[in-house]
Structure formats: structure tokens, C-alpha cells
Write a protein that binds this DNA or RNA. Structure first.
Length: 418
RNA sequence: GCGGGUGUAGCUCAGUUGGUUAGAGCGCCAGUUUGUGGUACUGGAUGUCGUCGGUUCAAAUCCGAUCACUCGCCCCA
């Protein structure tokens, strides 16, 4: 039997899980203040849910999906991202009369990519979607929410916001034509990658990292000049909306999203602390998505953030809540200890029972699990009915009657929080 | 998918031009201290040297393959 981990997957232990939980808790907490409600969709969907929405030419669909057939021959895919599944849920759940609707979600996603720092084959995303508002206010709200979360995580000075407009369909088609005709002059100089894109998805050439491509693009027509009045108005208003909230941003005209369903606003919160994996939160507007899946025409905008990447950026913080250790020096005290532990746990304490060994060792073990208080239960205590309750920080110790230990500890905790 | 680097104890890493029984620090366990912890001192345990194969009298060391991690490309969260 192989004990190896599947490539790009990993086991996550207590500390990291605590760390993730903190991010998720903060994410949910802030998002709920903006009116977002949690939705959980399945991890598997029919493959076409992703293929038709993300675009056949996108990297994710063309080479990164975990596709398989189940025993009935259904073509299924482990979700590579969250938006398509939520759009599907919105349509199949017949939620159109509840618009506008705000979703928050988090969970594992799967992409068959080469693993790197901050990049895994199974990874976790947090994300939000806002459906049913075609107005730029939705874009401002969604970006502000992302900024709010990053700010509360203390990442202000580590991230920057890049924003661009992909315009509406009309603007995009017009620009695409201009860009193609410009790039056609450089056909023999463009990178192979970009040449393929020239046919399939020319806008993606804009974010090519190839040096020569970048040079060619310097004189290429600028997307922002091809926005029609409607698109220009939309983009201006969005930017003004961000300024109104004092959210700093940079217009990045070469920012293009990898999925077909985006239009108008595209944005990324990026960092330079994670090497090639610089996008922490990224998203945009996808007005055509739901109609393309067979639903009524419904505008939408959202973003997704990488939990692992966020985790790499924020420091781990020790738990404030420290356990109480009950030291069992004598086996005949088992019942007494389990009852005391039960009572303390009912009162909200984290309780750890340490059995056997001498007192030195037991206190030592208590220290190692970051315990604040220990209660010693040994021969003498069973006789006298008085139990030493010791504060390991101050080394102060009081002898307390069994029935009063819980209240005594509560009192100490209250004093401490004052 | 392409290119570079790395892989030795739980962790961080040494290990000479191939040469006996593979090392250090931290951590862990025990003792000093049989009812009171963090410090100190003393002692101890722990390795398929990533895996498989090859060269050699002899491989952690050289060669090949493979796996994983890592950095860059690509792409993305």
C-alpha cells in the first residue's frame, strides 16, 4: 500500500486548521455584515457546467480539470472554481424572484496544475457572489468587501488592488478586431503561446509575460479607448465609487481574466510576497454567465480568494483560551475527576486531564499544552477535600473545596479580563 | 506541460577526493528532584541517508530513472 500523498494534496493539522478557521470566521463575519448568506454547492458537477461557462479555450478547462466518469457513465468534474456551480444552483433553485441575492461560500477546489508555493491541486477558496444588480454600485460593494476583509486581516500594506474594464460585448468585439489587426503585423515576432491565442482568445495576449510580446504591446491599441459610452460610464463610476470609500487602486489595462464569462469590471488584489502566485483575491463582473447556462438574463459579480495564500501572508496567533489541566495523581480519583472535568466543560473551560506520573511531570505536561491553571488531585486532597488550584503564570496556588473549584476558576478568569 | 535547485533523526542542517559502527543543534525521554513546572547540569533513544536500479572490493557521496518539494515559465486563488 502506498502511504504517499497524492501530488498537490496535503494533510492539514491543528495549527494550520486553527489558522484557516480564523480567516474563514472573519470572512463570514464581515460578509454577513454586507448581507451575504452562506451557500454550499457540491464539489462534483456535470463537466459541462464548467466547460461551457469557463470557456473551452481557458487553461482550466483545456488541461486542468479533474474529469472522470462515475459508474453510470456520467461525465463529472471536481469543481475547479466556485462561480459556475453557484450560478447553476441559482438557476436550478429557481431563485430569480429573490433578486438581488448575495452568496458567500468557501471550500475545496481542484485543479490539475504543477504544485508550487501557494499553489496546490486541492486548495481552498473563500468567495462571494452578488447576483441581480447591473448597476456599478454592485461592483463597488463587492470590491469594498474584499478590501474590508484584507484590511481586517491586517494585510493593507502587503496588497494592492488592480482594476480594469473589459467593457460590454460591443466594446469588446470592436477592440478585439483592432487588436487582431494590430497584432497581425507582428505575427512572425509573437511568442508561440500568443500566436495560438490570436485565434482563440486574443485578449489574453495582453497579459503575456513574454518580453518581446510586452514590447509589441506597448504600441497596441489601448482597450480603454475602445470602450463605448456605456462601458466608459460604468468604469468611471466604479472607480469614483472606490475613491469615495478611500480604497486605493491602480488601473491595469493589461489585466485580463482567464474565464470567458467576465465583462466590465475585472480586478485582482495582488501581493509581491508569494512569488509567481501573486493573486490573493480576484474576480469580476459576469453579466452573461447565467443566460449562457439557460437561465434568465441575470447580471452578476463576485470574487474568490485563496485560503492557503491568505494563510501564508498572515501571522499565526496563539489561542487566547488556554486549557485547565486536572492532574490525576491517583487512579482512585477517576470518577471525581471526570465529574469535575464535565462541570468545567459545561462552564466553557477547555479541560485536559493528565493521568499518572508524578506531579512534576504532570505540571510539565500542562505547561507544554499552554495550560493556565492546574488542579491537583492526589492522595492528600482526596483525604482533606481541599484541592490546590494553581495559576501557572503567577505560581500562586489556593486550596479549594471540590464544589467551589468551578466558581473559583470563573472568578479568576473574570479578574483577568478586567 | 517546459527549465533550474533540493531531498540525511520529529525540526533546522553538517557529512572531506567514495573508505570502519552516519553527526550537531533544537525537540523528545529519563535522572539530579518519590507532592509542585518553565532554568541548569548529566545521561539516553530515534535514521529503509526520498525510492528503485547501476558502477565499485566498498556508495549518503558517482551514474541513471522515478517520486516529492522548491524557484522560474505557463496559468491562476
Amino acid at each position: 500500500m502506498s502511504l504517499k500523498l497524492v501530488r498537490g494534496t496535503r494533510d492539514i493539522y491543528e495549527k494550520e486548521n486553527d489558522h484557516f478557521r480564523k480567516i474563514i470566521t472573519l470572512f463570514k463575519n464581515v460578509s454577513e455584515r454586507y448581507g451575504y448568506k452562506e451557500i454550499s454547492t457540491p464539489i462534483i458537477e456535470y463537466s459541462e457546467v464548467f466547460e461551457k461557462t469557463l470557456g473551452e479555450s481557458s487553461d482550466v478547462v483545456s488541461k486542468e480539470m479533474y474529469k472522470f466518469q462515475d459508474r453510470s457513465g456520467n461525465n463529472l468534474t471536481l469543481r475547479p472554481e466556485g462561480t459556475a456551480g453557484i450560478a447553476r444552483a441559482f438557476i436550478s433553485g429557481k431563485m430569480k424572484n429573490q433578486l438581488p441575492i448575495r452568496f458567500l461560500y468557501y471550500g475545496p477546489m481542484f485543479r490539475y496544475e504543477r504544485p508550487q508555493k501557494g499553489r496546490f491541486r486541492q486548495f481552498n477558496q473563500i468567495g462571494i457572489e452578488l447576483l441581480g444588480i447591473s448597476d456599478y454600485q454592485a461592483d463597488v460593494e463587492v470590491i469594498a468587501l474584499g478590501y474590508h476583509i484584507l484590511k481586517d486581516l491586517g494585510l493593507n500594506d502587503k496588497i494592492s488592488l488592480l482594476i480594469n474594464s473589459l467593457g460590454d460585448l460591443e466594446s469588446r468585439e470592436k477592440y478585439k478586431k483592432e487588436l487582431i489587426s494590430y497584432l497581425n503585423n507582428y505575427k512572425n515576432e509573437l511568442s508561440d503561446e500568443s500566436l495560438i491565442r490570436l485565434d482563440k482568445n486574443p485578449l489574453r495576449i495582453l497579459d503575456s509575460k513574454n518580453k518581446n510580446d510586452i514590447k509589441i504591446l506597448e504600441n497596441a491599441p489601448n482597450f480603454l479607448n475602445y470602450l463605448n459610452d456605456n462601458s466608459k460610464f460604468f468604469f468611471d463610476k466604479t472607480c469614483k465609487g472606490l475613491e469615495n470609500l478611500d480604497i486605493p487602486f491602480t488601473i491595469e489595462t493589461n489585466l485580463v481574466r482567464g474565464f470567458d464569462y467576465y465583462c466590465h469590471t475585472a480586478f485582482e488584489f495582488v501581493t509581491n510576497e508569494l512569488g509567481a502566485q501573486n493573486a490573493i483575491i480576484a474576480g469580476g463582473r459576469y453579466d452573461g454567465l447565467i443566460s449562457s447556462m439557460g437561465g434568465d438574463d441575470t447580471p452578476g459579480i463576485g470574487w474568490a480568494g485563496g485560503l492557503e495564500r491568505l494563510g501564508l501572508l498572515i501571522p499565526e496567533v496563539d489561542d487566547l483560551k488556554r486549557p485547565v489541566c486536572l492532574l490525576s495523581i491517583n487512579n482512585s480519583s477517576d470518577n471525581l475527576i471526570s465529574k469535575l472535568a464535565y462541570e468545567l466543560r459545561n462552564s466553557g473551560f477547555i479541560v485536559s486531564v493528565i493521568r499518572g506520573g508524578n506531579i512534576s511531570k504532570s505540571i510539565n505536561k500542562s505547561n507544554k499544552i499552554n495550560s493556565k491553571y492546574v488542579v491537583i488531585v492526589g492522595e492528600e486532597e482526596l483525604k482533606s477535600g481541599l484541592f490546590p488550584v494553581k495559576d501557572l503564570d503567577s505560581s500562586k496556588q489556593n486550596n479549594i473545596k471540590l464544589g467551589e473549584i468551578c466558581n473559583f476558576l470563573k472568578g479568576l478568569e473574570n479578574d483577568r479580563s478586567k
